[in-house]
Design a protein around this nucleic acid. Structure first.
Length: 419
DNA sequence: TCTGGGGTCCTAGGACCC
DNA sequence: TCTGGGGTCCTAGGACCC
């Protein structure tokens, strides 16, 4: 049996941990740059606020309904996620951290009452971290997702749902929209609806060959999993990334090269950090830059430039050099730029790089410098040491007007309790 | 004024190898 | 008249996830 533990309205729940006054009130969290709604409390959902809605379009509505609005605080969410995951780790020898707010637990070998066990997990996470979770337990991962969906949607389940008995499973699938099944997105749902397949149960009645042909082996696996045949394994160690991207919209449109270069240098530095964290080097780098396509009446420009690196690297200094040269090459005067990004590809392990006969870089020295840079920044905070090209970020940095404190990771933000 | 960010997997078709 | 067999690698496009 697999359990899927999913944090309820995770970002909103994180904001509420240190603000219990927000319980019972509508709360939303915005995307980077305070752009779109990306998390909603149940009260906010009840008001009809849509996922992905641009915040500026419903600003008046939010005020009128006294909705508490937050910029996203990924430092806080990341830390609380880590605490949830380590608590979950105590309940299984096999934990797969699937995303910032979800994890699969392999319950194989345990002889317990599943529902009682799930309730214990739920209570423990609540007590230790303060985040409410929903738990689905079933014989396959896809069915655990189905169970989780019921745990969340049906109040009588009280956050826990076990699907083991075939008749219960059938009943659950008959009551589930096919588009709600994990792995069936909008396009496949449309295709299935067009042949009068509306529920997960209908999908299960389809011919294997048809599913294979129209939805590839991925679709067929989903079908097997719904039938109770486990095809998806636990992934205990997250595989190294094959592509790493750092991109941001600017806090405001940029019309000059200098601040754009600073931003791109900073994104390159982030990519380098991510590479070093997974002990990889990248052999190729791409930089892109574009204007705001929503502003249809303004002149539009979008370009990217790919650059093969002479020797794969994860050095901040080297990646910044190529990235800024790239953006200089594609930058054109006379546009209002909205967003830029750096993508590194052809990623491989750092201890197996192919050198070059004509390489002028002292790679050992460079690696030593990076070790010091990482150590200093780990101790004193990000960008305590940085490359001067990154600048201060004054002109282009994210808009974050409603950021909550970093309650758990910054000394000055720790809450004070009066006795 | 204001519209997010970061990933994975699969398939088909073409180029190329011996 | 006759026209092999077995592969790999790369790319673009399309689907999906959080």
């Amino acid at each position: 049996m697999f359990a899927l533990v999913d944090c309820n309205n995770f970002y909103v729940s994180c904001e509420r941990v240190f603000r219990p006054d927000l319980n019972g009130r509508p709360v939303v969290v915005l995307s980077n740059n305070d752009g779109c709604i990306i998390a909603r409390s149940n009260e906010a959902k009840a008001l009809g606020i849509k996922m992905g809605e641009p915040a500026f379009k419903i600003a008046a509505f939010l005020r009128r309904n006294q909705v508490a609005v937050f910029s996203s605080n990924y430092v806080l969410y990341g830390d609380l996620s880590h605490r949830v995951m380590s608590t979950l780790g105590r309940f299984t020898p096999e934990l797969e951290v699937y995303s910032i707010d979800e994890a699969f637990l392999n319950l194989r070998g345990l002889t317990v009452d599943w529902a009682a066990y799930a309730r214990t997990i739920r209570e423990t996470v609540g007590r230790h971290v303060g985040i409410p979770v929903s738990i689905g337990v079933a014989p396959t991962k896809v069915l655990a997702k189905v169970a989780n969906h019921r745990a969340k949607k049906i109040p009588e389940q009280k956050g826990v749902c076990v699907l083991e008995d075939p008749e219960e499973i059938a009943e659950a699938l008959k009551n589930l929209d096919v588009g709600e099944v994990w792995g069936i997105g909008r396009q496949y749902a449309k295709l299935l609806n067009s042949i009068r397949v509306h529920t997960a149960w209908d999908f299960l009645q389809l011919d294997d060959d048809w599913v294979r042909k129209k939805m590839t082996v991925v679709g067929l696996r989903i079908k097997k999993e719904l039938a109770g045949i486990a095809c998806l394994e636990m992934e205990l160690i997250p595989p190294a990334k094959k592509v790493i991207c750092t991109s941001r919209s600017f806090g405001k449109d940029q019309t000059e090269l200098e601040p754009v270069k600073e931003a791109v240098a900073t994104y390159a530095a982030r990519c380098a950090e991510k590479l070093r964290r997974q002990h990889s080097c990248a052999g190729m780098l791409m930089v892109f830059l574009h204007t705001n396509s929503f502003k249809e009446h303004e002149p539009q420009y979008a370009r990217n430039l790919v650059c093969k690196l002479p020797v794969p690297t994860n050095s901040t200094i080297e990646l910044i050099r190529y990235a800024t040269a790239g953006v200089e090459a594609i930058y054109k005067e006379g546009y209002r730029y909205k967003k830029a990004g750096v993508i590194v590809m052809e990623i491989g392990p750092e201890h197996r790089i192919q050198g070059s006969l004509f390489d002028g870089v002292n790679r050992e020295k460079q690696a030593a410098v990076m070790r010091v840079l990482d150590a200093v920044n780990a101790k004193y905070g990000r960008d305590t040491l940085k490359v001067a090209t990154q600048g201060s970020g004054e002109r282009w940095k994210l808009r974050q007007e409603r950021l909550s404190p970093c309650y758990t990771t910054r000394w000055t933000d720790i809450i004070k309790v009066r006795v």
